[in-house]
Design a protein around this nucleic acid. Sequence first.
RNA 1: GCGCCUGUAGCUCAGGGGAUAGAGCAUCGGACUUCUAAUCCGAGUGCCGCAGGUUCGAUUCCUGCCAGGCGCGCCA
Length: 558
Amino acid sequence: MSVVAKQKEQLCSAIEAAIKAAQASGELELTSVPEIGLEVPRDTSHGDFASNIALVTAKAAKRAPREVAQIIVRHLPAGDIIRDVEVAGPGFINFFLSNQWLYDTIRVIEREGFSYGNSEHGAGEKILLEFVSANPVGPMNVVNARAAAVGDTLARLFRAAGYTVGTEFYVNDAGNQADVFARSLEARFQQLTDPDRPFPEDGYPGDYVAELASILKREHPELGALSLEDRLAFCKRWGTDKMVEMQREDLKNYGVEFDLWFRERELHEQGALEEAIKFLQDRGLLFEAEDALWFKSTEFGDDKDRVIVKSDGSFTYVTADIAYHHDKLKRGYTKLIDIWGPDHHGYIGRMKAAIQALGYSEDTLEVLILQYVALLRNGQQVKMSKRAGEFITMQDLVEEVGKDAARFFFLHRSPESHLDFDLDLAVEQSNENPVFYVQYAHARIASILRQAGEMGVSLPNCGQVDLELLTHDSELAMLKQMAALPEEMLTAALQREPHRMTRYALELASLFHSFYAHCHILGEQEQLRDARLVLVTQVKCVLQKVLDILGVDAPEQM
RNA sequence: GCGCCUGUAGCUCAGGGGAUAGAGCAUCGGACUUCUAAUCCGAGUGCCGCAGGUUCGAUUCCUGCCAGGCGCGCCA
């Protein structure tokens, strides 16, 4: 249990005892006591912990909230952790504790090191997190970059929370778009020998297709001799493979590596679609109409039924997706989380229906919808057009602003918010850029520790120092922030809110910079110096931990 | 028409039944003989989109409306 949770538990039982004592003495008439809420107030003048229990119970007790608070406070059992109690505002009970719990926090961090903040909350649950899943027919875009950052950091948060996590990129290499891409590639291939060869009207215009065609020509000159059909089939397989390689490389440079790249074509080759259809058929969930085969998704709350096999005999995208999700479930995952772009939200109903048709509860599938990213340059929105080739890819973005800034920017916003990405700002590498602020705090500590070593000062551990020397406001503020990490990480995971972690990192960095300006370390007398060395060593550890969750580097030097 | 997301300081965004609604940037004024000034300290700014409702208490929850973004294919 975290130090904070332990304090809360102690305070809760103290309040509970006080209420019971007040009831026994007849001062408080309450038939039932609700769960006692305790929070760490934003404003430190409101104590280390505060409870709104008097506000909540005032009505049932038929007394004014402040009065109830006074009664509870009067009956609080004497204890050693509570330094002071006050009734404040409309009826809050504010608790001021001795600093021991903060010094305990240092001991815990030193003991747990890099695993500080982790928990076993998700033990026994297997989460499959699917994200990005960009079609292997072109470069990835900035929403893909946003999804990659959010998905990857969520995966790290889930792992830290004790879940078993698999991350997957679903490669849609068997659909219409893959066929269009194959025709585009084939046409560019032909144009290398016959420049007048027409290009498909719906083909992909990007230069990357022509570049790929040149490579294809070099590696497989024999292709010209094949039949058109065979050549297209080859282009489809070879081309999507190449695109997947490029995507994998781009994502790796971005700090994102998937456990599995799942190929749609393998579902087709294994007959998984037919199998899924049979599964639904056996349960009477399909029907024929207008020469097509339909899935009765409305039986599970979808707003219309969906075509599974088109009138021309081919499958729809949903069919493969049902087979894919069935596959995930058969692999033993207990929770499927998909991260999609905003243009897919209309898809949620049919997939949730499919999950239920497959025999699982609706909330086995959870879909997180990301909102669009608008790129700004010179204060103007960058207009993008695939047709005109004016298109900022994920790779462009990462090259321009760097992996760390890109990830931090995306993670700094709540996932469902529309995001304005100011390219000038991210590029500036100035103090406007929050990621440097955090990294600088880490580098500053590294520098202090380096210099301590150069001075021949060996780094002490907390058993060797007097932690009670740490009494400066800025020191206590850092300790409080560090004590809050386990709860913050768990909340970020459970609420799927990775932006909590960027905010946490900024706050801790800010507290450190303030401390740095007010307190010296190496010049202080030995005992204080050593206590502060222990403190900043732990701050560095926590910063590194949080940056790691964000997938951002923690530099030793800047 | 229906569905999803958003509307909070000049800008970008947090917060989310309760204490005077927060942060960064921008603006202005201070701080480097001393561990990195990519830093710190200080100052001002709000019909929390509008209107009702629930509540002791609403920026937060409910309903309606307004504005912006995006969906509503036998595309993916």
